[in-house]
């Protein structure tokens, strides 16, 4: 039986005692080397020496503790422009900043920001978090609490997504900067195609409560492509 389906994973992970915040699937990565993000929690930095090879084929990352935020309202574009962040031209598209943040435009007036792996989210953490700090008619969204952030990497992205979703996500029709809000492995999620550190990647944002299930589903899906879990270092 694959180790994915083991039921004897310890409920107690020593390093987790020191952290108030941790991802929904932290027990899946008990042995990995970790790095602290700007949010004060940790993500997997490296699983083992095979990370780079696996990431090039079909890697799975768990980035839920990497900062992200969102804003909604008619003046959100003013806030983005003031912080020198790009504004995607239309809903369901994304754009990257010079620093590596990814700005997602999810509807006419809703934008989410994903942290740059390079600064471990320091720039995103510096953005306003309360309505008092944002312009009128611009409201912060707490997508770091509501959504988990998983990521697929490597050359087999399109093949893996075709196993999980009914939406065509081949690069020819779903290029870098495309967003799909749809169901994947039977749960709702937001998919964004990106290019980070020369690696084709797909960020997947799903309901936090489902992240452990989706992690298992993704790990299952990458098996046939000789993929597996990798750490954040492959993005830096």
């Amino acid at each position: 039986m694959s180790e994915l389906y083991q039921t004897d994973i310890s409920a107690h992970v020593e390093w987790a005692d020191a952290e108030l915040a941790r991802s929904g699937c932290y027990r899946r990565s008990a042995g990995a080397r970790r790095v602290e993000t700007a949010a004060g929690a940790s993500v997997i930095a490296q699983v083992d020496n095979g990370d780079v090879q696996r990431a090039a084929k079909a890697g799975v990352l768990e980035l839920s503790m990497l900062p992200r935020t969102g804003y909604r309202g008619t003046t959100t574009t003013d806030l983005l422009a003031a912080n020198k962040l790009p504004i995607p031209a239309r809903p369901n598209t994304a754009a990257s900043s010079a620093n590596g943040e990814c700005v997602l435009r999810l509807s006419q007036k809703e934008y989410w920001l994903l942290a740059s792996p390079a600064d471990l989210g320091a720039a995103v953490m510096a953005l306003p978090t309360t309505g008092a700090e944002t312009p009128d008619h611009c409201y912060p969204l707490f997508c770091m609490d509501s959504h988990a952030w998983l990521m697929l990497t490597g050359e087999h992205l399109s093949n893996i997504m075709s196993k999980l979703s009914g939406v065509d996500m081949r690069e020819s029709v779903f290029p870098v900067g495309s967003i799909a809000q749809t169901s994947i492995a039977r749960i709702n999620a937001i998919m964004v195609r990106q290019q980070i550190n020369g690696l084709p990647v797909m960020s997947i944002l799903c309901d936090t409560a489902s992240s452990d299930y989706l992690w298992t589903a993704l790990m299952d899906a990458v098996q046939e492509f000789e993929g597996g879990a990798v750490g954040l270092d492959v993005l830096r």
Partner: peptide
């Protein structure tokens, strides 16, 4: 209108 064609189950 926002996301394009999707399965009715969504």
């Amino acid at each position: 209108p926002l996301n394009g064609p999707r399965n009715i189950s969504e």
